[in-house]
Amino acid sequence: MERARAAGLVDPAPVAAVDATGLETRHMSAYFGLRRAGSGHRQRAWPKLTAVVHVASHLIVGAVPGVGPSQDSPDFIPAMRQAAKLIAFDTALADAGYDAEHNHRLCRDELGLRRTVIALNPRNTGDRSPKEAYRRALWGDFPAALYHQRWHAESAFSQHKRRLGSALTTRGENAQQQELALRVITHNLVLLPRAK
């Protein structure tokens, strides 16, 4: 991150966007995938990457490899803890898959972020105001314009897959996790020269 700071990529009040993406385990054409989807074939597990993306630069600052399909929320805490060691974020944005009071508390009370904007999951709230303080504050005044900056995470994933491909080359779970970590490093290294 020192090179990123020296290149002027890290802004004074950094915003993090947290999201997850799935990758493929084999190279297959989109057409073949669509044909196979209607064949009754069960969908297998896939490599999953949960990432904390720095909104201004699209650097991946925190990354947790895993296996999907799985719930997103459990990977929020390790990804944010990892990211907070590198950048003192001001704000964190996440979709409703990460809606939990303990995710707000981690960011605000433990890591020192000023704001957390995590969309409220209707399954957790229904039509009533949440009881927990941070979630209740969002119920009353949700900052939609700020939340919509979350698209930067999707953009970073798109850049990542365009440059490095959407399929991993390794097969075993441990090897895939190592490959995902190397891909994140490569993604960030590619972004640095553009800051000159």
Score class of each variant (00 low, 15 high):
residue 25 T to G: 14
residue 145 A to T: 11
residue 56 A to Y: 09
residue 186 T to Q: 07
residue 188 N to Q: 08
residue 191 L to D: 03
residue 50 T to G: 02
residue 29 S to H: 08
residue 72 D to W: 12
residue 147 Y to F: 10
residue 119 A to N: 04
residue 132 E to Q: 14
residue 91 T to L: 02
residue 15 V to Y: 07
residue 8 G to Y: 10
residue 19 D to M: 09
residue 92 A to N: 09
residue 97 G to F: 04
residue 10 V to G: 03
residue 18 V to W: 04
residue 173 E to L: 11
residue 89 F to L: 05
residue 30 A to S: 00
residue 81 R to L: 09
residue 190 V to Q: 12
residue 29 S to M: 02
residue 174 N to P: 12
residue 111 L to Q: 11
residue 115 R to Y: 15
residue 98 Y to W: 08
residue 28 M to E: 14
residue 13 A to S: 11
residue 195 A to Y: 13
residue 52 V to C: 06
residue 13 A to R: 15
residue 153 A to D: 01
residue 106 L to A: 06
residue 178 Q to W: 02
residue 107 C to E: 09
residue 144 A to D: 09
residue 184 V to R: 03
residue 2 E to L: 15
residue 92 A to D: 03
residue 11 D to I: 15
residue 94 A to I: 06
residue 177 Q to C: 12
residue 163 R to L: 05
residue 158 S to N: 04
residue 83 A to P: 04
residue 79 A to K: 00
residue 126 G to H: 03
residue 134 Y to F: 10
residue 63 A to I: 06
residue 75 D to N: 13
residue 41 H to W: 11
residue 170 T to F: 05
residue 53 V to G: 00
residue 116 T to M: 09
residue 66 G to V: 12
residue 25 T to H: 12
residue 54 H to A: 08
residue 116 T to C: 13
residue 47 P to V: 07
residue 134 Y to R: 11
residue 196 K to C: 14
residue 40 G to D: 09
residue 160 H to N: 03
residue 42 R to L: 14
residue 84 A to N: 08
residue 143 P to F: 05
residue 16 A to V: 14
residue 189 L to P: 03
residue 192 L to S: 01
residue 111 L to F: 08
residue 59 L to C: 01
residue 46 W to Y: 14
residue 4 A to W: 12
residue 113 L to C: 04
residue 56 A to M: 08
residue 13 A to T: 02
residue 11 D to C: 15
residue 129 S to E: 14
residue 153 A to S: 07
residue 56 A to K: 13
residue 111 L to G: 02
residue 16 A to I: 13
residue 120 L to C: 00
residue 37 A to C: 13
residue 141 D to H: 15
residue 86 L to W: 10
residue 152 H to A: 12
residue 78 P to Y: 09
residue 118 I to Q: 03
residue 42 R to P: 00
residue 35 R to P: 02
residue 55 V to A: 12
residue 12 P to G: 06
residue 94 A to T: 01
residue 94 A to K: 01
residue 75 D to F: 10
residue 119 A to S: 02
residue 97 G to S: 04
residue 120 L to Q: 04
residue 146 L to E: 08
residue 71 Q to G: 03
residue 4 A to Y: 11
residue 112 G to W: 04
residue 86 L to Y: 11
residue 173 E to Y: 11
residue 52 V to K: 06
residue 107 C to D: 12
residue 9 L to H: 10
residue 144 A to H: 07
residue 28 M to Y: 00
residue 11 D to W: 15
residue 157 F to I: 06
residue 108 R to M: 15
residue 156 A to I: 05
residue 133 A to G: 00
residue 93 L to V: 01
residue 192 L to R: 04
residue 85 K to C: 15
residue 8 G to K: 05
residue 165 G to L: 10
residue 81 R to W: 07
residue 66 G to F: 13
residue 37 A to F: 15
residue 24 E to G: 01
residue 20 A to D: 07
residue 69 P to L: 06
residue 188 N to H: 04
residue 140 G to D: 12
residue 104 H to W: 14
residue 115 R to E: 13
residue 67 V to T: 05
